[in-house]
Every structure is written in C-alpha cells, then in structure tokens.
Amino acid sequence: MTTTTAPRGLRRSSDLPWGNPLVYLIAALVITAMLGPIVYIIIGGFRTNSQITVDPAGWPDPWNIANYLDVLGGGIFWRQVLNSTITAAATTLGVLALSLAASYVIARYRFRGAGALYVLFASGLMFPLTVAITPLYIVVRNLGLMNSLGGVIVPQIAFGLAQAVIILVPFLRAIPDEIEEAASIDGAGRLAFFWRMVVPLSLPGVITVGILVFINSWNSYLLPLFILNNEASFTLPLGVQAFSSQYSVDTAKVLAFTSLSMLPALVFFSVFERRIVGGLTGAVKG
C-alpha cells in the first residue's frame, strides 16, 4: 500500500498557462450539464406556480421570494434541520471515538488477534446497509428505538466503522515508534500517549473520516425511512420527500424546500472541498 498524501494534484492554477480554447469549451459544457439541474432547482424556487405552468423551463419574472420565506418561516424545515444536524453530529462523534480507539489497538498493540480484528472491521464493507436493513429494523425495534434519532445514530455508527478503521489504521501506524518511546520515557502511559500524541498526529485522517461520515449521515435515506415514521423525528431527506408528496401541486414551494435542504450540504462541501476530494482519492488509492 502506498499512502500518498491526498490533496496532491490540486496545484495552484494561477501560475499555469492558458491552453487550448477547445478544452475550456468542453469544460464549460460539462460544468453546465453538472450544475444546470441544481441551478434549476434553486432558481425554480424563485418563481410562482403559474410561471412554472406557463413555461416550466423559464426564468423567474418577476423574482419572487415568497416560497423561500414560507419554508424558512415554518417550523417544519428548522426541526428537520435540527434533527439532521443532531443525527449527523452524533454519528460523526460516535464513529470517530470508537474507530480511533479500535484503530489504535489494531495499529499499535502487538497481540494475537490484531490482524483478525482488522479483518473483522474490513469485512464490514461486504455487509452494505441495504442488505442488512430489514433485520436491522427489527433489532432497532426490539431495542425500543423506533422514531428516535438514536435508532438511526447507533446503526449508522456501526456501519461507518469499517471505512473509518481502514482509513485510520495506516495513519496511526505511520506514527514513529520513537515518539511513543520518548513519551513513555517521559512517564506517559499508553492512554496518555493516545490523547496527547495520537489524536493530534492523526488529525488529517480524523478530519477526512469525519467529513465523509457527516455527509453520508446528512444524506442518508434508507435507514431513516425504516426507523423514523413519525413526522416530528424526520430528518431532511425524509422531510423533502414528505414535503414534495404533500405539496405535489405546489411545485415552486417544493423546489424552494429542496434547494434550502441541500444548502447546508453545499456549504459544508465548499468549506471542506479539498479535504473531501483529497480524502476520497487518498482513501481509494489506499
């Protein structure tokens, strides 16, 4: 395994030459195709239903912010934002805490079974959530966690572990033994070493895992669909779907709701884009 550090290819473009104009034309077309539908959803929210009925592909004339104000003024949207935020934050914290501890054991303790432990977690990649969902639903129901965010959070933590352990173990193993020896000469125990040295030194890996888990949780649909049947507990994806079937005649409002619900993910992505793109490539390349 070659662990290339991730965001290598993203060099500053200011010192690059202008190339073939055809290349820019193709790039512009591709970007239009990729962003067009997203822009349509956002702009569509600024139109009225009659405008949409007359010409579904038209421009807002006049621009109309009532749909957005309606959604932002209602309690439903904010409750779902809150639910999604709680779920994603708790899932991220849970995955990071559990996977860091387990990866630390796998990477730095030499004992019979360390290899088996790694294989156990890595095998999780062969057990996708889609396959496990029906019995998982029964487990969650038997635990009395139906319609509670906990019933989504705990399984999501479990299903996030495989990926997290696989990303984190190489980071933890890369910490030089000398640092650990120095720490232990200074009288620090392994657990103190874990908190003082391991966590800070593996921060890039931790951040990558954290972002991936957070976005996964923010977007997740199948598990909440099974666990959360009560509208008060809906996360945003369920909320978007419920809203779009409830207001199926009010297209403009559905578009406004949908674009507002993707806004947090887009903001999150634009803040961390280098980490995400780099993290994915790094993770895939191993």
Binding site: L10, R11, G19, V30, M34, L35, I38, S261
Partner: peptide, 30 residues
C-alpha cells in the same frame, strides 16, 4: 492538462456526488 481554473472545475464536477439522493431524485423527478 495544465490549465487555468482546473481545481475549480474539478470541484464543480464533483458537486452532484455530494448532494443527497433525495434532492437529486426530487429535482430530477420534477
């Protein structure tokens, strides 16, 4: 290829991947 704005283009191409399936499905469905 070495070109201006390549990192921006890379990020923009990646945007649909980050958006949730529900948003994509609802938007495209409409």
């Amino acid at each position: 290829r070495r070109m201006k704005g390549q990192s921006v283009i890379r990020v923009l191409i990646f945007v649909p991947y980050v958006i949730s399936e529900v948003v994509v499905g609802t938007g495209w469905g409409l």
